Simulated assay, not measured.
Amino acid sequence: MTTTDITDFKAAIEPRKYVRLEYLTDLNEFIKADAMVVGINAQNGLETLVLTDGQQIPLDRVVSIDGRLSPLYPGYANYSCDC
Rank of each mutant, 00 (worst) to 15 (best):
T4P: 01
F9C: 06
Q43A: 00
K32T: 04
G39M: 02
N78P: 00
A12T: 02
G67T: 12
A77R: 05
D26K: 11
P71A: 09
G75D: 14
L24Q: 05
D66I: 02
I13W: 12
L21V: 02
A33P: 00
G54M: 04
N41W: 04
G75P: 01
G67A: 13
D26M: 07
G45M: 08
G54W: 03
Q56A: 14
V38A: 03
D66H: 05
R61F: 03
T4L: 13
P74T: 10
L21Q: 02
D60V: 11
G45C: 07
V50N: 13
E47I: 06
L21E: 03
V62M: 06
A33K: 14
I57P: 05
I40D: 09
V19C: 14
P15W: 12
K10R: 12
I57T: 08
L72K: 15
P71G: 09
E29Y: 12
P58N: 08
D60C: 12
N78I: 02
T52N: 07
R16Y: 13
E47G: 04
G67W: 14
I13R: 15
G45D: 06
D8Y: 07
A77D: 02
T52R: 05
L51R: 02
R61Q: 08
N78W: 05
Y23K: 00
N41H: 07
A35D: 10
I57L: 08
V50S: 11
D34T: 06
D60R: 15
R20W: 03
T25R: 05
K10H: 10
A35I: 06
L49S: 06
R20M: 04
R61P: 03
L49M: 06
A12W: 01
N28V: 02
I40M: 11
P15A: 11
T52D: 08
G67E: 03
Y23W: 05
T25M: 07
F30C: 10
K10I: 10
D66R: 04
M1Y: 13
G67N: 06
L72H: 10
Q43E: 09
R68W: 07
C83D: 14
